[in-house]
Simulated assay, not measured.
Amino acid sequence: MRLPLALLALAATAPLLAQSAPEVPGQMDATRVVAGSYSADPSHSLIAWEVNHFGFSDYIGLFGDVSGTLKLDPANPSAAKVDVTIPVGKVTTASAGLTDHLLRPGEDGAKPDFFGPEPADARFVSTSVDVSGNAATIEGDLTLNGITKPVTLDAEFTGAGNNPFNKKLTVGISATTMIKRSDFGIDTALPLVSDAVQLEIHVAFEKD
């Protein structure tokens, strides 16, 4: 049975197409990771937060411009250290009114409903790292709204390689966790707006 000419042409060009397809710089390959100190790339590091609103829908906002450091050694991954700072004052949402509400002062000198106009940066500092394959459990202390509480991150190594623009060796880490905002003194509108806040963290660390 003869194949149609179009299929024969496609079969002939397939190897050329495969050769010309660019490779994504970051690969989930731990052998690419080099021991040393890394700094977060603020332009490509984000923390998304999610709360339930009135039991109807989940609402999502973002913290950007994340900074921080990562110290790691592939030969001893459990000795890794993470120290990340989150500029709460740069919180953003899809609603200008809600963003303003998060950052506005309290009425008549009262405590702000949420963060207030000049909130201190939040900070997470790891205390232990338990690595299993490409995943890790990171225990640490989160300071938010002037209160420090222990938090556990379920983390994952997402890729390593050289950034094609600045040529820096980069390691990507993603993580999730859940905190209770009331633990950090943010209790406005409970329980209409959920106490549970889901956090999704994506940080690109560049080698110093």
Rank of each mutant, 00 (worst) to 15 (best):
M1H: 04
L3G: 07
L7H: 04
L8S: 09
L8D: 07
A11E: 10
L17C: 10
P25W: 13
R32N: 15
A35E: 15
S37V: 13
A40I: 05
S45C: 09
S45Y: 01
L46H: 01
I47H: 00
V51Q: 07
N52V: 12
S57G: 05
D58C: 02
Y59N: 09
F63W: 10
S67C: 04
G68Y: 01
G68K: 06
T69Q: 09
D73Q: 07
A80H: 06
V84I: 13
T85R: 03
T85S: 08
G89A: 04
A94I: 04
S95M: 06
G97Y: 01
G97N: 08
D100K: 08
H101N: 05
H101K: 03
R104A: 08
G106P: 04
E107M: 03
A110E: 13
K111H: 07
P112S: 05
F115N: 01
P117C: 09
P119H: 09
R123Q: 15
R123V: 12
F124A: 02
T127V: 13
V129D: 02
D130E: 15
V131K: 05
S132Y: 12
A136K: 07
I138K: 06
D141N: 15
N145H: 15
N145I: 11
V151S: 06
T152Y: 03
A155P: 14
F157I: 04
T158K: 13
N162P: 09
N163V: 11
K167Q: 15
L169K: 15
L169P: 04
L169S: 15
G172T: 12
S174C: 08
I179T: 10
G185C: 10
I186S: 00
P191G: 05
L192T: 12
L199Y: 00
I201M: 10
A204S: 14
E206Q: 15
K207M: 15
